[in-house]
């Protein structure tokens, strides 16, 4: 074998090992968490863990429903608030921004993505929580789903904006010319041709944002209130639910792990398993959408 050939095959082995190592790490993490969660799954039962609405470790009550609802609602809120703005950013950057504005806005969006989440938490604590406290509503203390949704919306904005910008940019120019030549205005062209053509790319942008939202921990702990309770509108109209305190799945683990022992500790690992599965679902949805995007070509 030549020297070059030897280097080549050594290189290939090293890369293969690196690939296998990452697979191994994921598998080991999964197995480890699952093993620690087994006692809780066995003694409490999977169904009672998922559907129980009481989480009182002192009384051996381990229901994750309030946290599942908390994570779900805060993610929903973040997408509702963040998606229009993020999509607007993506459209602006891809279609209408003059070069120099793009040169300013794009790096700032990238910077937004790089800010540590604890800083967003601080921002929420100092700015949003006091502002939300201003709403006169029973039980409203500023801490809760609304503040958390806003923080999370800002955090997922860069992901959704930049991925959807790429998706919009990859729409062939022939479509734009075709639409304009038929007498569409620029906005009609974007709305009726460009966005539908970029649909699956935009959808995967949203799913990527969801993944980030579900996993966010520290910023949520700082603003969501962390009370173990089913979020409720406290007697008011349904949107009032967002003024309710809540706790996320991630927060549940982070807040209690330092002092938990025995079954309590195992139930926290079970929370981790639920998160693990959720993220896996979100990621495979994103992957499936991207694959359809790439395979669909012009479609």
């Amino acid at each position: 074998m030549t020297r070059k050939g030897a280097v080549e095959s050594a290189m290939r082995t090293v890369l293969l090992c690196a690939g296998l190592a990452s697979l191994l790490i994921v598998a080991m993490t999964g197995i480890f968490i699952l093993r620690e969660a087994m006692p809780a799954f066995r003694e409490v039962g999977v169904w009672r863990l998922l559907s129980g609405s009481e989480w009182r470790p002192g009384q051996e009550l381990y229901g994750l429903l309030p946290m599942i609802a908390g994570s779900g609602l805060v993610t929903l809120g973040a997408v509702c608030l963040g998606l229009p703005i993020a999509l607007g950013c993506g459209i602006f950057l891809a279609e209408t921004a003059p070069g120099w504005i793009r040169g300013v806005v794009k790096p700032s969006i990238e910077l937004l993505a790089g800010i540590p989440s604890v800083v967003y938490g601080l921002f929420g604590l100092v700015v949003l929580v006091p502002a939300v406290r201003g709403f006169d509503y029973p039980g409203n203390a500023g801490f809760g789903l609304l503040s958390a949704s806003i923080v999370l919306a800002v955090m997922i904005l860069p992901t959704i904006a930049s991925v959807s910008e790429v998706a919009i940019r990859s729409v062939p120019d022939e479509y734009r010319k075709g639409a304009l030549a038929l007498g569409s205005t620029r906005w009609e062209m974007i709305r009726t041709v460009v966005l539908p053509a970029a649909r699956s790319g935009i959808l995967s942008a949203v799913v990527l944002g969801l993944g980030r939202a579900v996993g966010e921990t520290i910023a949520m702990i700082m603003v969501i209130g962390n009370s173990v309770m089913m979020p409720s509108a406290m007697g008011g109209p349904l949107p009032g639910i967002f003024l309710s305190r809540a706790r996320t799945l991630t927060g549940n683990i982070a807040v209690e792990m330092s002092y938990a022992t025995g079954l309590h500790s195992s139930a926290l690992f079970a929370t981790g398993v639920v998160l693990f599965v959720l993220i896996m679902l979100v990621n495979s949805a994103a992957r499936a959408l991207m694959a359809r995007n790439a395979g669909g070509g012009r479609g």
């Binding site: 062939p172 479509y175 075709g178 030549a181 038929l182 009609e188 009726t192 041709v193 539908p196 479609g299």
Partner: peptide, 24 residues
């Protein structure tokens, strides 16, 4: 109206392509 060098139908149905102009 204009017809381009390379056919450039929208990634939509035949019906939606032809009705595109009247619709907008």
């Amino acid at each position: 109206g204009m017809v381009f060098q390379r056919p450039n139908p929208f990634p939509k149905s035949i019906f939606d392509n032809v009705s595109y102009g009247p619709r907008i």
